[in-house]
Amino acid sequence: MSKEKRVIKILRYDPANDKKPHWVDYTGEYDSDSTILDVLNEIHWKIDGSLAYRRSCRSAICGSCAMKVNGQNILACETPIHKFKGKIKIEPLPGFSIIKDLVVDMDLFFEKLKKVKPYLIVDKPLPDKEFTQSPEEFEHIRESVTCILCGACTSSCPSLWGNEDYLGPAALLRAYRFIFDTRDDGANDRMDIVNDKNGIWRCHTIFNCMEACPKDIKITEYLSRLKVKIVENSI
């Protein structure tokens, strides 16, 4: 495997010592198949142990390592460095406040998620065995259940940058996932929650969320279906 010299620029910020975030350059030789997370680990373990970033599963399933690289929101663990030409600029996810370096404050993100009741609500008697769905019924939510809540979509949304009260695509997608789940009985409750000035109507179909999603979920399309359902329901 060939090694190549790469310049890595990282936006560093330590609230205890820095007035504002600043770029720091690191130069090293990396395998072209190395991921962004490999590079961050290399820097953290061998060059500067003070570099803060989140990581966990290394398998693109925990959603911890979402960050902005060369202008794109990506998962560091699944993105190889050969995808980027020239200098690699690594920043924390935009739209969230920075705790330290690449670690952002996700509290508000998860608070908004809780608002849409992200769990199955069942009023009918429980079946003896498992709840079943037909393949056709499951198809409506098949993609949306693969969301790993990494925050890449919500952080890429310009409507959220302008209004931090906006629920954001991740919470709305989770609302869609349960509203369109045939086993769920809480659809009206959830639709009442997202049918709000700071809910679904702040989505202007900009498509940034779809481009940012590392799981290639067609978020904007599902949010549009949700809008139609809410309007149909209220007429």
Binding site: I193, D196, N198, G199, W201, I230
Partner: peptide
Amino acid sequence: MDKNFKETSKSGGIIWLF
């Protein structure tokens, strides 16, 4: 229901539809 939002209104749906 307490939505804990600064603004609450249902007008968004009609505006969007029109």
